[in-house]
Design a protein around this nucleic acid. Structure first.
Lengths: 219, 219
DNA sequence: AATCATTTTTAGTCTCATCTAAAAATATTT
DNA sequence: AAATATTTTTAGATGAGACTAAAAATGATT
């Protein structure tokens, strides 16, 4: 049995180390999970013991095949629940995270599969992140940071990185939502801000905001 | 903060002691929760410390007003999730219990209220048990065991007690479901079995089955 | 009322997941 | 390459929540 706490560590390693393929440092995990390095060392040992992680002292940690799968399945649940909360229970995308963080640990294969079906087998969560399938696989969205788009080109807002309350509220306030078409008009070299145009208006976004917006140009 | 474990104890006391109004023994709780009497004593002390329970050594335990509310809200969540699983996710009523046992501990007032709305504010769960409202109140179903019904009278199947797989499968096989109107035709003193009549057929049910069927005569 | 049986409580131990403080290893700087 | 700084690990402690075994209280029986 993988405990709730172990699942959280697996998730952190998965996110920090490109699906757990790249070694992640003890401190990085501690920061992500908001714990202390010593706690992380303890837990990593336990994960290695259970064959979920590869660990060499002082060298950081990666995930084994089964660790990677376990992490992906937790992330799958997290993102499916996020879709459910937004689509069926009228949550806004800045409200879903804490609840999904609890729901992702519910253990019931049937529940996950039925939830998936109820939602129509979604491929992305409300933040634009891809939802892994039952085998932990997904096709990463080919999205590009809006700062790398040449002025004059446009695309669909496909993903945001920061999922803090303030940032998502900022997006709401400015009528920016996933799926919106955004055209890049101008890049300002002085402060690295961007002028963009949406269906409804023209606006200037700071570099700090732009860094968090990813658009997909295909679709 | 009420922990998951504390919630389980509150629920047990609530169920065993008529909403926690009647003193419940340490042993009874231990049996219900599948733990040991010593563990129960420890936990009861903690609940009393938090003003959720009234505890006098060797005299059993009752719930305080806030303990009663806390327990009712957990039960509310449990039963709402059961409805959700059956109505939206194609669970059969014998599959819901374990999962609902996990889901009932999710903390999010918004989640509960929205779920309630999504389900159309149900008043009873799939087993016929009433769902408490936000204040922990509910009108207990005035249902009576079918063995206590005078031959000749009828009612609506409102509640079943046994929720084991075999029993629920038995009901399915014999086309008996909650909401069905059942008329009692005859009581057989020899083996305490009953002859009943449903919309579709006449049948004889054993005493063991009859003990688990409750019908409501108003509605 | 005295003995026996049962229930409940206490005392002490265990595991899990965390922490602090100190020691050890690695990385960086001069 | 030595000294200093940073990171990581170890050692030992803590709090939940559970357990076993023994002691204390209550209840039942003669």
């Amino acid at each position: 049995m993988v405990t709730r706490s172990e699942e959280n560590y697996l998730k952190a390693i998965y996110h920090l180390g490109k699906q757990g393929t790249v070694a992640v440092s003890t401190n990085a995990i501690a920061e992500k999970i908001e714990s202390k390095a010593s706690s992380v060392t303890d837990m990593i040992k336990k994960l290695a013991e259970k064959n979920l992680a590869n660990y060499i002292k002082y060298q950081g940690v990666t995930l084994t095949e089964s660790g990677r799968l376990a992490a992906a399945l937790v992330i799958r649940k997290h993102r499916l629940w996020e879709v459910f909360l937004v689509e069926k229970l009228n949550f806004t995308w800045d409200e879903v995270h804490d609840v999904a963080e609890q729901l992702e640990h519910i253990k019931s294969p049937k529940l996950v599969n039925e939830l998936d079906a109820l939602l129509g087998f979604p491929t992305h969560d409300p933040h634009g992140d891809p939802i892994p399938d039952k085998d932990g696989h997904y096709t990463p969205l080919k999205s590009v940071n809006i700062l790398e788009v040449e002025p004059g080109n446009e695309g669909v807002l496909a993903r945001v990185i920061d999922s803090s309350d303030v940032f998502l509220k900022y997006l709401n306030k400015n009528n920016l939502a996933l799926g919106d078409t955004i055209k890049v008009l101008d890049f300002e070299p002085f402060d690295h801000s961007l002028t963009i145009e949406t269906a409804t208006k023209k606006m200037i976004i700071s570099n700090a905001v732009a860094k968090n917006l990813f658009i997909s140009q295909e679709l």
